[in-house]
Amino acid sequence: MAGAHFILRALLLAAATVAAAQAAAPLPDIPKGRGEKCVEDTALMRTNHMEFILHQRDETMHKGIRTSKHSLKECIDCHAVKGDDGLPVSVESPRHFCSVCHRYAAVSVDCFQCHNSKPESK
């Protein structure tokens, strides 16, 4: 029983440490997109944007459905962040809309090996 107690305490201590670390890390400062609001609720977007993009990806790729609501191109266009030179930054920059959160959460983005992370230069 003493052993179980010890393990429980250790777990609690670990959880507290993690929580403290999370509190210590500054939350990402998310750049504002163009227009009034996003195509979906912000909360829904935060948790499900990858699902929307993934779904749209297959629709467009295989069925030729080119609606703009959940298209990656539209995300990139609305959420472009300008750099010091006044031009949109690429995903390489920590200021890029996708990078801000993805770096914070340490989740790699696989989209931009093929897709352009900046709005197309006209």
Binding site: Q113, C114, H115, N116, E120
Partner: peptide, 9 residues
């Protein structure tokens, strides 16, 4: 700098 309509990587 791919075209938005022609992704390639």
């Amino acid at each position: 700098d791919q075209k938005s309509y022609a992704p390639r990587g």
